[in-house]
Design a protein around this nucleic acid. Sequence first.
DNA 1: ACCAGTGCTGTTACACAGTAACAGTCCGAA
DNA 2: TTCGGACTGTTACTGTGTAACAGCACTGGT
Lengths: 167, 167
Amino acid sequence: MATVLKSFAPPAHDHGRCIKTALVKAERACTASGKRLTPLRRRVLELIWNSHLPVKAYELLSQLAQERAQAAPPTVYRALEFLQDAGLVHRIASLNAFVGCGEPLAGHVSQFLICTRCGTVAELAEPALSAGIAASAQRLGFKVARETIEVEGLCRDCQKAERALTR
Amino acid sequence: MATVLKSFAPPAHDHGRCIKTALVKAERACTASGKRLTPLRRRVLELIWNSHLPVKAYELLSQLAQERAQAAPPTVYRALEFLQDAGLVHRIASLNAFVGCGEPLAGHVSQFLICTRCGTVAELAEPALSAGIAASAQRLGFKVARETIEVEGLCRDCQKAERALTR
DNA sequence: ACCAGTGCTGTTACACAGTAACAGTCCGAA
DNA sequence: TTCGGACTGTTACTGTGTAACAGCACTGGT
Ligand SMILES: [Zn+2]
Ligand SMILES: [Zn+2]
Ligand SMILES: [Zn+2]
Ligand SMILES: [Zn+2]
């Protein structure tokens, strides 16, 4: 049965809560796996969670630079690398951007729905899709190690908005 | 039923034939859709088809620069944009690289198997996968416009090679 | 013949994305 | 105390991609 980890965030919701729970889960995930969520890394994660939109590395850098004068590209890229390895953020290859992971404790496949109008990203976790890919691959003798699924389209709200325009 | 457009190219095969048929199909696709495959565009396509490996834009540029002294980044990026729009090449987002499309006349979904050892890329066309994605998306009210599926792993030959090493 | 518009390429100059390499700091283990 | 490892600072670079303008060829109308 298909399970959706994170659905599209409603336009107006208590996002402070999203941030808070994301940070708490991150702390837990790190202590559980013996990794260190340093102030810098924590701050970068927090910046990423400022919205449900994918964030570019250099946006993070400029925000960070307002707090830490010394911030340079390696600063943010190292933090991002750590956060990715810890499963706390995902990289969206088709956008060169990063989003926070809503379920860092669960196993992560990378399946994303990206709304091209409002920019928000939703993460899926459909074992059936992964299974289908694995099956197709196996028919070619191919052994899957990592999958990248990035689907562009329109979220429900943006479809409504589009229809309203063309009416 | 699943159909495989292009399987992994055998290590040694008549690749001149691959190039030739790719160019012929490209000509056809362009005349059919009223697009112009200019010498520059044709040459870039030919360079991409030099192998079944994904090619980086700046590799193309340096090859091109040996023939045309004036070649600059826009030269190659504009050709690539045209070729993509014409469905003659695909961009692999996770690699920042480009591969020729084996079936430019058929509709293109973007489903790729990427061998992390030998680097070759195989293109899939599994309607079942696309259907599965569309179904999952619809459950969230999401309307799919474009899908990116890039699967990394090991091709059959490279699995054999790996096993031989660890034996 | 003239002109305007369009599509293709040349050219310059950037902006954005990511990494290598080395230097300090801190801290816990031997 | 000393060593080593993890983290961050710092410099400098490579790689990826685009904006903007200029020229040029072709086409279609006048
Ligand atoms: Zn939220
Ligand atoms: Zn939207
Ligand atoms: Zn071939
Ligand atoms: Zn291989």
